[in-house]
Amino acid sequence: MGFQVLETSKLLNYARARSLWIVTFCTGCGGVELPPTATARFDFERFGIISTPSIRQADLLLITGYVTPKTLKRIIIVYEMMRNPKYIIAHGSCPINAGIYWDSYNTVKKLDLYIPVDVWIAGCMPRPEAILRALVKLMRMVKEGKALGWKRYLENFEFYRKNQDRLFGKDWRKREIEKLRFYIHD
């Protein structure tokens, strides 16, 4: 009941939309366009967006480019450590279909088999304008309460888990958590 109010309240959704905090986690080449988006020419702080190095404080995970299995493990862990509600923007053609690395043995071809993505940006090195457009679109979705990737993840956890296990092997979570023991608490 209480959760219902938290999820649908107009004021809360407005505040969520106007203050998206990004995790500082550059996963691929697209990360090079984030500083220009953050600084004088494009300045995403106008919309209340800042980047924070702490995962617990963040709401938005930007997947800025190609994803290798080793990175994907970290992405999943980071995503699960973030607090609900949380959103993902996938950035560039690589997360969509591996783009120019379509025949590489070490890139993940379809990202949305493993984690839920709210907004996609097409383009090989999307321009800052495109990033801003995606951010604004996500803000609109959040305001209307439509960015529900985190709910999809909870509801279809079995599906995502099965795909993840197929890629990394059965007990990858345990192994990874063993490595990062002191950074993960739940």
Partner: peptide, 25 residues
């Protein structure tokens, strides 16, 4: 190793001209 994309292998499967847009990455 978070960013390994196997450039040297990919370059062998592309023609000389196709390699320009690949290798600059």
């Amino acid at each position: 190793g978070f960013l390994h994309r196997a450039f040297e292998k990919l370059a062998e499967n592309r023609t000389y001209i196709q390699n320009v847009p690949l290798l600059l990455r």
